[in-house]
Design a protein around this nucleic acid. Sequence first.
DNA 1: CCATTTTTGGTACTTTCGTATGAGGGGTAA
DNA 2: TTACCCCTCATACGAAAGTACCAAAAATGG
Lengths: 137, 137
Amino acid sequence: MKKTILTFSGIIFGVLALFQLSHYQITYSHLYSEVVVAIVAVVFLLMGLFIAKKKRQTANEVPSTIDHHKIENLGISKREYEILQKISEGLSNKEIGARLFVSEHTVKTHVSNLFQKLEVKRRTQAVQKAKELNIIA
Amino acid sequence: MKKTILTFSGIIFGVLALFQLSHYQITYSHLYSEVVVAIVAVVFLLMGLFIAKKKRQTANEVPSTIDHHKIENLGISKREYEILQKISEGLSNKEIGARLFVSEHTVKTHVSNLFQKLEVKRRTQAVQKAKELNIIA
DNA sequence: CCATTTTTGGTACTTTCGTATGAGGGGTAA
DNA sequence: TTACCCCTCATACGAAAGTACCAAAAATGG
């Protein structure tokens, strides 16, 4: 919050300075009028982008930031997480095994452990829950 | 695509006109220099907001508007679509049958037909593809 | 080095999924 | 009325998925 106030104070100050500058430049010398306009344009373009970004971050919600903390919380290991991702891509156990260079048996073991940690019974449920928990995209 | 090109052409044209205007105003009359700067500022601020919005819509994703047209296009029937939704909720065929008051056999038939239309082999793939196609939330 | 966790792999079994095929009833448009 | 699609249900089979239980390398943390 403090950061936001400081940022916006800085922006307002900068904008006022810019206006003063443009006023001075345009009134007392005609040399760089296009430059002033260009600077104003760029600054306000960036401000528009910045404000839009801020608004999206605060108002809407963070669109799919993976919650690594929650993954740890659930005790999901690296390998299990990899497999979770493959499951969400719609791969079969056999295909996952082939991609990760392990046997289908191994994949099944991981999947079974994963389901216990996610408290689900099926891979479709696992995908749904994982997305709910923001642990996969 | 055509729309995007037209829009951006319009924007570029507008910007060029604005620059010409500012040049004329500032060079040949000193009356409205602040006004010109202000206009430029506002226009570019709006442009920044617009571009940010566009970027979010294209890059990130449209915030989940279901494409009913595409559902028809694929020839997916009402019942099949209902079942697709249940699948995405992680339900088994038996559970889907219970919820829709039909036998598991019927569900299987629908599921099989659905997979052909979606060109997938597994329910996890179906969910993934359906979300890609924006036909489910 | 020891304890623990992770990763790997297996057997055996049950359940669920998916396909093929057929079949009957209902609605709709040509 | 016929042709066509949708929904329903069924049998049968093969293919995945999932569970239980076990075991042994390999990595990790003290």
